[in-house]
Simulated scan of single mutants.
Amino acid sequence: MKPYKIPESVLVVIHTADLQVLLIERADRPGYWQSVTGSLDAPDEPLMETARRELFEETGIVADGQAIVLRDWQLSNVYTIYPVWRHRYAPGVTENTEHVFSVEVPRDIAIQLAPREHLNHVWLPWLEAADLCFSSSNAEAILQLREYCRTS
């Protein structure tokens, strides 16, 4: 039996300098578009490591800390887990804490999707990307992107 997911995750908004945002389409829910997301593998896994791992697993992008730098927004969202995915968590778990990160990449960076997780990817202007996201916390992070990039 597969172990239950830890109800703590990361959200990584991938963008270019001109705020084009990469969205990926879920394989288990075609038509559901999102940024990179993923749960901790262990309760003591550092959030930055979770973000780095998920970024690579889902897109093939390596955050090396030099050319590609993950930024921790020091922002967390608590949201109700969608009923369709609650079976992945221990009985009674209904909320997840999501930690927001972003990463700026060149527009021509190669994207290698994990085929079991995602079907397609698309680059969109940030407002269009926010509109396409099925997750409200993901959309909100994208809407904050312009302001965040100005202040960081």
Results as ranks from 00 to 15, higher is better:
residue 29 R to T: 14
residue 22 L to P: 06
residue 134 F to W: 12
residue 56 F to Y: 15
residue 132 L to S: 12
residue 7 P to E: 02
residue 89 Y to S: 04
residue 80 T to G: 03
residue 19 L to E: 01
residue 46 P to L: 01
residue 98 E to K: 03
residue 81 I to V: 06
residue 14 I to F: 02
residue 73 W to C: 00
residue 11 L to W: 02
residue 130 A to Y: 08
residue 109 I to D: 08
residue 26 R to V: 04
residue 21 V to C: 08
residue 1 M to R: 02
residue 148 Y to R: 09
residue 45 E to T: 07
residue 6 I to N: 05
residue 16 T to L: 06
residue 74 Q to F: 03
residue 14 I to P: 08
residue 120 N to C: 12
residue 81 I to K: 05
residue 109 I to A: 01
residue 150 R to H: 07
residue 147 E to F: 08
residue 17 A to Y: 01
residue 55 L to Y: 00
residue 35 S to V: 08
residue 42 A to M: 05
residue 58 E to D: 15
residue 45 E to L: 09
residue 145 L to E: 07
residue 5 K to S: 13
residue 123 W to I: 01
residue 56 F to G: 01
residue 150 R to L: 13
residue 33 W to C: 06
residue 41 D to T: 14
residue 85 W to A: 13
residue 51 A to F: 01
residue 125 P to G: 05
residue 108 D to F: 02
residue 31 G to F: 11
residue 148 Y to I: 03
residue 151 T to V: 15
residue 41 D to E: 15
residue 141 A to L: 09
residue 142 I to M: 03
residue 5 K to D: 10
residue 61 I to T: 10
residue 16 T to G: 03
residue 137 S to G: 14
residue 38 G to N: 04
residue 134 F to L: 14
residue 13 V to S: 02
residue 79 Y to R: 05
residue 91 P to V: 07
residue 26 R to H: 04
residue 84 V to D: 12
residue 29 R to H: 10
residue 88 R to K: 00
residue 82 Y to H: 14
residue 44 D to L: 12
residue 75 L to T: 06
residue 26 R to A: 15
residue 90 A to S: 09
residue 1 M to W: 01
residue 114 A to T: 03
residue 148 Y to C: 08
residue 140 E to C: 09
residue 138 N to Y: 07
residue 34 Q to N: 14
residue 135 S to G: 15
residue 122 V to G: 04
residue 112 Q to V: 04
residue 145 L to Y: 11
residue 15 H to P: 07
residue 105 V to F: 05
residue 70 L to F: 03
residue 62 V to H: 14
residue 21 V to E: 01
residue 62 V to W: 11
residue 134 F to R: 13
residue 71 R to E: 06
residue 79 Y to W: 14
residue 40 L to H: 04
residue 82 Y to V: 01
residue 62 V to I: 15
residue 122 V to A: 14
residue 121 H to C: 11
residue 18 D to L: 11
residue 1 M to A: 14
residue 144 Q to V: 04
residue 132 L to H: 09
residue 130 A to E: 06
residue 152 S to I: 00
residue 4 Y to P: 02
residue 103 V to N: 03
residue 147 E to M: 00
residue 76 S to A: 15
residue 104 E to G: 01
residue 21 V to K: 00
residue 119 L to V: 08
residue 42 A to G: 11
residue 34 Q to T: 10
residue 45 E to S: 12
residue 68 I to P: 00
residue 64 D to F: 09
residue 79 Y to T: 12
residue 69 V to D: 11
residue 75 L to K: 10
residue 123 W to Y: 00
residue 52 R to F: 00
residue 87 H to I: 04
residue 122 V to R: 12
residue 123 W to A: 00
residue 105 V to R: 11
residue 19 L to Q: 02
residue 107 R to E: 03
residue 132 L to N: 10
residue 100 V to K: 08
residue 27 A to E: 14
residue 42 A to H: 15
residue 15 H to Y: 02
residue 147 E to V: 00
residue 139 A to M: 06
residue 80 T to H: 03
residue 93 V to M: 05
residue 46 P to D: 10
residue 144 Q to G: 11
